[in-house]
Amino acid sequence: MIVEALFPERCSLYADLVNAQYLVRSAPDLELRSTALGQTPLFATERPALISLGSMTESAQEQVAARLRPWRERLEELIEAGVCLLATGNALEVLGARIEREDGSGFDGVGLFPTVARRDLTHRHNSMFLGRFEDSREDTKIVGFKSQFSHSWALPGAAPSHLFEVTRGAGLQPGCPGEGWRRGNFMATYLLGPLVVMNPGFGRRLLALMGVEDPHLVFEDQIEAAYRVRLAEFEQPGRSFDY
């Protein structure tokens, strides 16, 4: 089974690539393959177990969106086929309908999610996040961090389909009860960086969705210990979530 890391030379600003690496190291059947921005994506002809895409610069967002837009139909097929995708940080925005700059100009995203991102380079949003990941088999508390210049909104009329339920912190935009977006097993979140490393329960569920039997994470005792400490901190009522 293949895990395809899309454009890691441009899209792993905050160690986002570690998510794919950690999953691959946790399951011997998985193999990591990287696709550079100038190459044809592997998913064009194959069906990876997971596609990963991480945080990138604003100029890279434009290049990545342009690179992926021609593959929208194929990506729709993969969603229908139950293939997993994990997008972290502002990679979420690239999969949405549009990214708008402060002056009202903008560019189209891949169009897989009915979301629009609005960018404000003069204000960086930094916060902690506590939420829940619920699907048919799992109810997991999620911890994570956000650091971003933009927020996203669902397009008018679009039914919310968030990845996480917000317990504390900002959702898709501050005040939104849901965080990220999910369509089938295509999952995108503003939580950046090593999300899987911070959330072992989510990591195991992702492995299961990818088709890994009896999923376990490498260094499981230690990853759980780190998670327990962080979760306890995040659940303390006095913790400040914005900084």
Partner: peptide, 14 residues
């Protein structure tokens, strides 16, 4: 940081 909020440890993976 350990007193009031929680350090974003992404940097440790970079």
């Amino acid at each position: 940081y350990s007193k009031d909020w929680s350090e974003n440890t992404y940097w440790m993976w970079c």
